[in-house]
Each structure stands twice: as structure tokens, then as C-alpha cells.
């Protein structure tokens, strides 16, 4: 089993009000089979035993699906490997002696709560604004009553794969959330079940994203390459299209 030694320059911040600072920590004897979060676990165990406060970081599933984990490693959200969340990033992608700068996702809409933990509730607010199909329990028609072309269902699934981690916002030079919003608008808008509310949905969600203080998309496409689920910017274009249609041609205001 190969092991490596690393130097971590890691962001420490006690509370949203605290100014925060970088702290340098050594991570010794890290097995290359560990995941990045397991590496942090090891560092945290040592910090605890040394009587210091461990590093706070969000995580839950550790399988790359819940979207809870995430940090910026050497300038890259979720680290250097494509299509991979931080919890699925393994230490074999680093070399002995590397120095890693570990920072929280940064955006005005994502306040730092503590260390690497940020508040991403702005994304929920965007969903509350319109990210749903209003179908009360019990009123659904027979599932096969409306056929959906396999290709359309796949396209919707491509968008629905979004785990809401916020890496798109973290990666975007403008801290824009348009990949997230685009994915949600596409997922629901592509399906026939989502069409009745499509116009209302896209207007409400785009406006809410603005209200939450995300930046504007300038099509830099960093989001697409950093997205752990490799969601395409075609979804942003689809949202733009829906938005124009809704704003100009629909009766929604």
C-alpha cells in the first residue's frame, strides 16, 4: 500500500462573522487508496487527539450522489479529477510532497458557516420558486398514459442527474448558478408532465436566482467541466430559450 505526505493549506473560519485565515497542516502517511474525505478524517483524528478543533466539512453519502461534500482544491471545485465529487476523489491522484490549498466554495450567495462548510440554501430557494410539477398526491394518471420518447427521457435524465452541490457556482468566475437552474428547468421542461407550468417556472426560477445574489452567466463554461455529474451547458441554452419564450410569447408576467 503506497502512502504519501502532503501539506495542506486549509481555510479555517469559526463563524460567518469571523474573518477566517489559512492554516498549514501536515497530512502524513496518507494511503493512496483513501478518498479525499478519508484523508481529512485522518487529519481530524490527529487534530482531536492534539486537543485542537477538527476541520468542519460537509459530507454524507460519500458515494458522489447526495451533493453534500465539496471544497475547492488548488483552485478546482471537487479537485482535479473530471466528473468526480470530493468524496469520490482518491488520493492516488496526488503525489508525495504536494501542497494542497483547500478552500470553501466561494460566492456571495454561499456564506461560509464554518471552515469548509457553506450555506447553500439559496439553491433551495430557487427550487421553492418553481422547481416542481404541481401534481397532488393521488391525482396522477396511469403512468403509461403519456409515452415519452426514450431520447427525451434520457435528455431529461441527463439534466436531472444534478446533485445540487454548488460546484458550478464555485467554478464560475461570476459565481453564477445558471448550470443548476438550467438543469432544473430542463429536467422538468423536457417532460410532457412539466409543460403546463414551464413558462411560470422558468421566469420564477431565474428571477429568484438573481434575488439570491448569484452572478450572471457569461458562458465561460467552467461549470460544465467542473460539474461532478458533467451536466452540459446545453441546459443553460434550453433555459434561455424557455425564458425568452415565456417572457415574450406567454401570458405569464
Amino acid at each position: 500500500m503506497a502512502t504519501i505526505d502532503l501539506t495542506l493549506k486549509i481555510w479555517r473560519q469559526n463563524s460567518p462573522r469571523d474573518k477566517g485565515r489559512f492554516e498549514t497542516l501536515a497530512a502524513r502517511g496518507i494511503s493512496t487508496d483513501m478518498s479525499f474525505l478519508e484523508m481529512l478524517d485522518v487529519v481530524n483524528e490527529q487534530l482531536t487527539l492534539d486537543g485542537r478543533e477538527p476541520i468542519c466539512f460537509d459530507h454524507d453519502c460519500r458515494e458522489g450522489i447526495c451533493g453534500m461534500c465539496g471544497a475547492v482544491i488548488n483552485g478546482r471545485p471537487h479537485g482535479p479529477q473530471r466528473g468526480t465529487t470530493l468524496c469520490q476523489l482518491h488520493m492516488r491522484h496526488f503525489a508525495d510532497g504536494d501542497t494542497l490549498a483547500i478552500e470553501p466554495f466561494r460566492a456571495r450567495a454561499f456564506k461560509v458557516v464554518k471552515d469548509l462548510v457553506v450555506d447553500r440554501s439559496a439553491l433551495d430557494k430557487v427550487m421553492v420558486a418553481g422547481g416542481y410539477i404541481a401534481a397532488n398526491t393521488g391525482s396522477a394518471p396511469e403512468a403509461n398514459a403519456t409515452p415519452i420518447a426514450a431520447a427525451t427521457a434520457e435528455l431529461a435524465m441527463d439534466a436531472a442527474a444534478c446533485i445540487g452541490c454548488g460546484a458550478c457556482v464555485a467554478a464560475c468566475p461570476n459565481a453564477s448558478a445558471m448550470l443548476f437552474v438550467g438543469a432544473k428547468v430542463s429536467h422538468l421542461g423536457l417532460l410532457p408532465q412539466g409543460r403546463p407550468e414551464a413558462a411560470r417556472r422558468v421566469l420564477a426560477m431565474v428571477r429568484e436566482a438573481d434575488r439570491q445574489g448569484f452572478g450572471n452567466c457569461t458562458n465561460v463554461t467552467e461549470c460544465e467541466v467542473e460539474c461532478p455529474k458533467e451536466i452540459s451547458i446545453a441546459n443553460i441554452a434550453r433555459m434561455n430559450r424557455e425564458f425568452l419564450k415565456a417572457a415574450i410569447a406567454s401570458r405569464e408576467r
Partner: peptide
């Protein structure tokens, strides 16, 4: 607005290859 959207900048800036 875009500058405002990220009041605290990253210490390390790197591109994933999109820009």
C-alpha cells in the same frame, strides 16, 4: 455585478479547461 457575486476571492485560481 459579477465582481459583487464573489466578494471573497480564491487564493488559488485554476481553470478546469472550460474557459
Amino acid at each position: 455585478q459579477n465582481l459583487q457575486a464573489r466578494p471573497v476571492r480564491y487564493r488559488v485560481n485554476a481553470s478546469g479547461g472550460g474557459q
